[in-house]
C-alpha cells in the first residue's frame, strides 16, 4: 500500500534571483530546478535526466555553477541565484550568448542554458581559460548535437571578447 508520508513543511525562502530579491513559500523538499521552473516561471533552466547526470539544469549560486536538480531551494536562502534569463541586460546579449548564437554553439538548444551558465562560472573564476580548462569546466554538461567543437569555439570567442 502506498504511503504518502508526512506532508512536507513549508518555509519562506528569500533569495536574490537574477539580481532581484524575492520571497516565496517553498516546501522543504522542493528542488531548486522546480522552484525556478514552476514557482518563478523561469523555464530556461532544463531537466534532461533523472538527477545530476547531464548538466542541463546548471545555474549559478553565488557565482558557482551547480546542478539545480540536486540542490534544495531552501539551501539557497539569502544567496544569489542566476539563470540563463538573467544574463542579457540593457538590450544586449551577454558575450557568451552572442558567441553561442554566432558560432552555432547551440543546435537543438536544450543543453545550451546549462552549458552557458557553466561557461559563465568558468569565466568568472578564470577570465582567460585554455582549451583544456574549457573542456574540463564543461565535462559535466552533455550535448548530443555539436560534438562540443562549436561549444568550445564559442566559449573561447566569448573569453576573447570584451566583457
Amino acid at each position: 500500500m502506498f504511503d504518502p508520508g508526512p506532508i512536507p513543511g513549508k518555509r519562506l525562502l528569500r533569495i536574490r534571483l537574477n539580481g532581484r530579491w524575492r520571497e516565496d513559500a517553498v516546501a522543504d523538499d522542493q528542488l531548486l530546478v522546480d522552484y525556478l521552473r514552476d514557482t518563478a516561471g523561469l523555464t530556461g533552466t532544463k531537466t534532461g535526466c533523472d538527477g545530476g547526470e547531464c548538466g542541463a539544469c546548471t545555474v549559478l549560486v553565488d557565482d558557482e555553477p551547480i546542478p539545480s536538480c540536486l540542490t534544495l531551494a531552501a539551501r539557497c536562502e539569502g544567496r544569489s541565484v542566476e539563470t540563463i534569463e538573467g544574463l542579457a541586460a540593457g538590450g544586449r546579449l551577454h558575450r557568451l550568448q552572442q558567441a553561442f548564437h554566432e558560432k552555432l554553439g547551440a543546435q537543438c538548444g536544450f543543453c545550451t542554458p546549462g552549458m552557458i551558465m557553466a561557461a559563465e562560472g568558468l569565466l568568472r573564476r578564470q577570465p582567460d581559460p585554455s582549451e583544456a580548462e574549457i573542456r574540463a569546466a564543461l565535462a559535466g554538461n552533455l550535448c548530443r548535437c555539436t560534438g562540443y567543437v562549436k561549444i568550445v569555439e564559442s566559449v573561447r570567442a566569448a573569453a576573447a571578447a570584451d566583457a
Partner: peptide, 21 residues
C-alpha cells in the same frame, strides 16, 4: 560563411519553449 540560426537567440536566452516549458 553561413548564418546563425534564425531561432538561435531564443535558444541562447532561454526564451525557447520546449514541450515541458
Amino acid at each position: 560563411d553561413g548564418v546563425p540560426l534564425i531561432d538561435g537567440i531564443d535558444k541562447v536566452t532561454g526564451r525557447a519553449r520546449y514541450t515541458a516549458d
